[in-house]
Write a protein that binds this DNA or RNA. Structure first.
Lengths: 211, 211
DNA sequence: CTGCTTATAAGGCAAGTGTCCAATAAGCGG
DNA sequence: CCGCTTATTGGACACTTGCCTTATAAGCAG
């Protein structure tokens, strides 16, 4: 039993479509961020979570950092697509569209501890990293534009009088309410239940844009 | 020049008062969190930033994690003390007191990228770590209580009519506005200048609590 | 000036990480 | 059924980290 260099490898794993594997890794990254925080989210740990060998990360992403960045991009893209899909088809009833937007923001899918936890990490990165900042900036612009569009529908349809505050201020405030409640929802899940967040947003919108 | 085991150590460093050194390390922690993110904030890096040997951390804190926690505690304590000192002495003029509170929240001292960046990390930790959650919870309660006190002064002094919304809702909204603007201020420093944040808070308060 | 306390430095060690790389087989086209 | 592409594995390496320990000297009491 001195030398047995044989039968060492065991690539039993089924071969997955490259696209599916990539998504596995992206999802595992979010999960790791939420479970272990940014400190514990290492390339090897992500692979462990995804159930693949640590060598595979390199095969799909140039390095763990890039994986993190792409996770951010993917998350932004998905969230924006979802929000647009939910609110835009209801342009005929602007108040309803806005309400649906709020519901989506606080939905299980986008206000889960996992997602918000990951989001906080990305915000953090955006301060010190150029590439993360670009993604963040782009997302903010697009999200703000969507919100603005919904609000403009309100006044354009003459369903609401011109706001008391300058339009830009009113939108900034509504946006702040959304962000603030979103964070708070994350911080302690029992304090402000989902339905109340939505109700508060509705109230704020009515206050800002209705008589 | 074969064997020179002599003259290796060089504890040239001046001896600092234990309290000052502790504060050095706490400050270095905040700085590291902002500069390198949670991932790069290691015990050794903090010591490097503080200009001391890596062995010293152990002498003041049981481990890097504990240092992080104490940094959080210190930050919370300082911020609450500051906010109270700024707003409470002006109970005679409730609107003014509230305004001073807003100004303090967005002051250079408490809305700096360093502070908010560190804060995001602590929020993240609060989800997965019991001890961080306790600090976070305690801070939220006290901060909320302070804000509530300021608002109650408003109505108690009959300087404002009873709010349109239930009191609890109005306070929740105002708090959300504060948090939301605070974060946004962090995310891109050129978008929403400090003065505008304060003005928006004032506007929100007037809207919620004045006729 | 001497000696004690203790703040400080720095080395060693095990564990974990990122990067690179060679070996292996899974699944498809022929 | 065979052979090529490539998804996948797992090891090697240098490096960093956290933890512990010992050696040193800074500053104060006497």
């Amino acid at each position: 039993m001195a030398s047995l260099p044989e039968q060492v490898r065991k690539p039993r794993a089924r071969r997955a479509s490259p696209l599916a594997r990539r998504e596995d890794l992206l999802a595992a990254t979010v999960s790791c961020l939420a479970r272990l925080g940014p400190h514990g989210t290492t390339g090897r740990e992500i692979c462990r979570q995804a159930g693949v060998s640590h060598g595979l990360l390199r095969h799909y992403f140039s390095n763990p950092d890039k994986l993190l960045l792409e996770t951010y991009e993917q998350l932004c893209e998905d969230m924006l697509a979802h929000l647009e899909a939910v609110a835009l088809p209801f342009a005929a009833n602007p108040w309803d569209a806005l309400h649906r937007y709020f519901v989506a923001v606080f939905s299980d899918e986008w206000a889960s501890p996992e997602i918000i936890g990951a989001w906080l990490v990305f915000w953090q990165q955006a301060r010190s990293r150029e590439d993360f900042a670009a993604v963040s900036h782009d997302f903010n612009l697009r999200q703000r534009a969507l919100l603005e569009q919904l609000v403009v529908q309100l006044t354009a349809a003459a369903m609401a009088p011109p706001p008391i505050l300058p339009m830009a201020d009113a939108i900034a405030l509504l946006s702040a309410v959304l962000d603030g409640l979103w964070i708070e929802y994350y911080l302690c899940d029992d304090r402000t239940p989902r339905a109340r967040c939505v109700a508060l947003c509705d109230a704020a919108a009515r206050m800002l844009f209705a008589a």
